[in-house]
C-alpha cells in the first residue's frame, strides 16, 4: 500500500529526514517511535502533503501512485488520513459544514452521489457512537473551544467518518489522560480492518498497550535505526531512548 524509498526531506535547507525506507501493507499496524526532534512529525506531514517541506530525494508510492506528485486533498480522496498532533481551530467554519463538504468532495471523486442531510446526520450519529465521541456538533466551529482530549477524539471521529485506507496518527496519545487514551485507542481498533493500514506515531509505549502494532520502527536523527516486532516497544520503554543513542554512537 505504501512504499517509501530513501526519502530525504529538508526545511529551510536543514535536512530533517535522512533516508527513510518503509513498506506498509494492507492489514498492518506500524508504530513509529522516537525521541523529540527525530523527525516523526515531519514524516507524517510530508506524507499528508504539507508544502513547507522540500523533498530532496527518494520516492513515495501509495497504491502504486507517486504520492509526492499529488495534492493534499487528492491524497485524502485516495484514502489517506492524517490525525494531527495539534488539530487546528477554525472559528466560524462549522463542524457539520466541514465534515459534509469533506465527505461529499470525496464521494464526488469516487463517482458517488452526495449524501443528503438525512443520510449525513445519520452517519454522524452512527460514527459518534462508534468512537464514543459525545460532543454536540450543532453550532460548533471546527475544534473551537474543544479541550485537548476532545480535539484528539475529534480526529478519530473524522477518521471514522472518512474511512481511510491508510491512517497516519501523529502523537494522537499526547496530552491525553488514561480514560481519553482508552477511548481514542478503542476507536482506532474498531476502525481497523484487513484492508486498511495504520501508522501510529508516538513518543511513548503507553498507547501501544492498547493498539498492538505488527511492526515497531525507531526513528532517530532522521533515520530508522531499529525495527522489530511489538516487543521492541517494551524494550524501549524499559531501557529508554538513551539505549538507542548509545548503541548508535
Amino acid at each position: 500500500m505504501l512504499s517509501i524509498k530513501n526519502l530525504r526531506v529538508s526545511v529551510s535547507n536543514k535536512e530533517i529526514l535522512k533516508g527513510i525506507n518503509l513498506e506498509v501493507k494492507a492489514g498492518e499496524v506500524h508504530a513509529i517511535m522516537g525521541p523529540n526532534g527525530s523527525g516523526k512529525s515531519t514524516l507524517a506531514s510530508v506524507l499528508a502533503g504539507r508544502e513547507i517541506f522540500e523533498v530532496t530525494s527518494g520516492e513515495v508510492k501509495y497504491k502504486g501512485k507517486n504520492l509526492l506528485k499529488i495534492s493534499p486533498e487528492e491524497r485524502a480522496r485516495e484514502g489517506m488520513f492524517l490525525g494531527f498532533q495539534y488539530p487546528v481551530e477554525i472559528p466560524g467554519v462549522s463542524m457539520l459544514t466541514f465534515m459534509r463538504t469533506a465527505i461529499n468532495e470525496i464521494r464526488k471523486y469516487r463517482n458517488q452521489e452526495p449524501l443528503d442531510s438525512m443520510q449525513f446526520m445519520e452517519l454522524i450519529e452512527r460514527k459518534k457512537l462508534l468512537v464514543e465521541f459525545e460532543k454536540k456538533m450543532e453550532n460548533r466551529s471546527v475544534n473551537e473551544g474543544f479541550s485537548g482530549g476532545e480535539k484528539k477524539k475529534n480526529e478519530i471521529f473524522q477518521m471514522a467518518m472518512l474511512e481511510p485506507t491508510l491512517a497516519i496518527l501523529d502523537e494522537t496519545d499526547s496530552g491525553l489522560d488514561i480514560d481519553a487514551l482508552r477511548v481514542v485507542a478503542n476507536g482506532i481498533n474498531k476502525l481497523k480492518t484487513k484492508d486498511n493500514a495504520t501508522i501510529v506515531i508516538t513518543h511513548y509505549q503507553r498507547l501501544l498497550e492498547y493498539i498492538i502494532p505488527d511492526y515497531v520502527h525507531v526513528l532517530y536523527d532522521g533515520k530508522f535505526v531499529k525495527s522489530g516486532g511489538k516487543e521492541l516497544a517494551i524494550e524501549l520503554e524499559i531501557k529508554g531512548y538513551d539505549w538507542i543513542k548509545k548503541e548508535i554512537e
Partner: peptide, 17 residues
C-alpha cells in the same frame, strides 16, 4: 492545510475560510 487534508479542494477550502 487542515481542511485540504480531509479531501476539501484548495479552492473550496479557501472559499470556506
Amino acid at each position: 492545510f487542515y481542511l485540504r487534508s480531509r479531501g476539501i479542494s484548495n479552492e473550496e477550502a479557501r472559499m470556506m475560510l
